[in-house]
Design a protein around this nucleic acid. Structure first.
Lengths: 329, 329
DNA sequence: CTGAAAGCGCTTACAG
DNA sequence: CTGAAAGCGCTTACAG
């Protein structure tokens, strides 16, 4: 006893398969009484179209792959930023009646899996998230000619359309804010050097520091809390005089707060701390964190719009960030 | 310029489509020289089978849905238990050459989405994770006759095959351990009453307490850290004399540790605390947590094996847990 | 507005 | 071992 087919519905409703197909797909031009008959037959048989058959002829799957270049441990239980982005993208895609297929690909095997899946025609488009410098995916996927949009600026050599927030401008605003608070020795904890978000935030920091005639003080992390704690320890050891830190992610900023507390430095009295992202934790940390808010929902909407648009790939869209001042600065 | 088809490969290799199909699918009986010719043509054209066409005839998709009945915020950035389970299941499935489609469904809309997706024939099977009592999914999905296995015992009324760990036995071991340490007033912080894992752990607690002639003291949480902190506050207010707590999840146990610290109760001197799950955090908490280890990988393997087996649905499999004693008891 | 027919790209008995 | 042919369940020009 197999699932009913279009054929069965047509027989029961006393019409052709074409008519059933039109009704099921909501075509306008079907006489009301036939439409009613078809809909009743669909209901009675519990008919649901076979998606493989439909995809075969329409060449669409109504599915979009969201490919995250990070290991599961990082995506699932570390940075709430991923949670926020994945949720926002999913909601936009669901609103457009597309199924999102979440694929994590942080290893060569993962990349191969994604490549096979996409090349096999399983999805109509790909969203790239958290790409690192040496990412092989854009090149290998472009061979499948599937539409692709990157969440965040890809490295220069890859001609992938993208939406991003103004990482450089956001960093600038945070550092200028620290300067305006009268801070003299402002360090930064930067993100992974192979990610453009980290590069741009570091660029914004350097720009403001240079314009103000200050010496840049840089420690490198990888966006995680632990790396922020470690970088802060290094800064304290190397540059005990610092009175402010701009961390390129809230998670790193929170790690830095822990280190400062353990070292007996008061925040913001001794050292001011600013982060980036505005994750929920930023509002609850001790003290609450001054940070740069990313427009997560807007970027997601932009990406989905770009991906689903039939127009030729548009120019990159850079959305503004917003400085949120709390008690840590 | 479309993707090359089987037809194109056949033409280039000078053989029939049937032969190409056999080579591509690894059938044994093809003469070596033909096989070589086909493989070269495949290589030259960059041929990859169209999965919709293949699914249409084979009635297989080689994809499995992993349906988690929780909101994104909980799955992505709260409980590392989900991370562990999702990772373990994915690895088992990938080893079996199946693609896993992660679907979160915590709302009516989410349930409808999953139902449509499964009924549309997108997947060959469904794994149910973190089901709550009133879960509509098993009933609605069973209409599609797709194989289904539950991670964890479903509520009694649902005849879904499942694999689980010995929640009751694990809880018993933890509580007996607390008794053997000489604790007199042992409370429990239980999980959501509509989840069988919570019910079984609570059952194990009650069983041991009854056998020992002790009065059960129960506060209810929902497996999250905050709920553990809150429940612990309630326990301290209602039963200030307690000298031990068995929390039904590590996350709740860690929340309880925070509350105890804030209340000035020493762990384990004043109050012993045991958890359940053995997440990584349990080893790092202050103090490190005595807990019940779940065989996450083994349960995942069991589920995948059950789902992919062609045998009639087997009897439930219950895997043993292990008590890990650390400094909190 | 409706239906007969072709065709999407595969796999798989069946015959040889 | 190999190929010709049927068929999976849909959609979509095309004709009327």
């Amino acid at each position: 006893m197999r699932r009913p087919t279009l054929e069965a519905v047509a027989a029961r409703a006393g019409v052709s398969r074409a008519t059933v197909s039109r009704v099921v797909n909501g075509a306008a031009n079907v006489k009301p009484h036939l439409r009613t008959a078809v809909m009743r037959a669909v209901e009675e048989l519990g008919y649901i179209p076979n998606s493989a058959a439909r995809s075969l002829v329409t060449r669409r799957t109504d599915s979009i792959a969201l490919v995250v270049s990070e290991p599961p441990s990082r995506v699932f239980s570390d940075d709430p930023f991923f949670s926020a982005v994945i949720r926002a993208v999913s909601q936009e895609l669901e609103a457009a009646d597309r199924q999102v297929i979440l694929m994590l690909a942080s290893s060569a095997a993962g990349h191969a899996r994604v490549e096979r899946y996409v090349a096999g025609g399983h999805v109509d488009g790909v969203i790239l998230l958290s790409m690192h410098g040496a990412e092989p995916l854009p090149a290998s996927l472009s061979r499948s000619r599937v539409p692709m949009v990157s969440h965040g600026r890809p490295v220069a050599s890859l001609p992938v359309p993208y939406c991003d927030c103004d990482n450089r401008g956001g960093a600038r605003a945070a550092v200028e804010h620290l300067i305006s608070r009268g801070r003299r020795r402002i360090a930064t904890i930067s993100g992974p050097p192979d990610m453009t978000a980290a590069q741009d935030r570091l660029g914004g920091y350097r720009e403001v520091m240079a314009a103000a005639g200050r010496r840049p003080i840089v420690a490198t992390g990888d966006f995680t809390r632990e790396s922020g704690a470690t970088a802060m320890r290094r800064l304290l050891a190397d540059e005990p005089e610092i009175d402010a830190v701009f961390a390129a992610s809230d998670l790193m900023a929170v790690g830095a707060l822990g280190t400062l507390r353990a070292a007996g430095r008061r925040v913001p009295d001794d050292v001011a701390v600013a982060g980036f992202d505005d994750i929920a934790l930023a509002g609850f940390s001790e003290p609450p964190l001054t940070t740069v808010r990313q427009p997560v929902t807007e970027v997601a909407a932009c990406i989905v719009r770009t991906l689903l648009s039939t127009d030729p790939p548009s120019a990159p869209v850079i959305l503004p960030t917003e400085l949120i001042v709390r008690e840590s600065t």
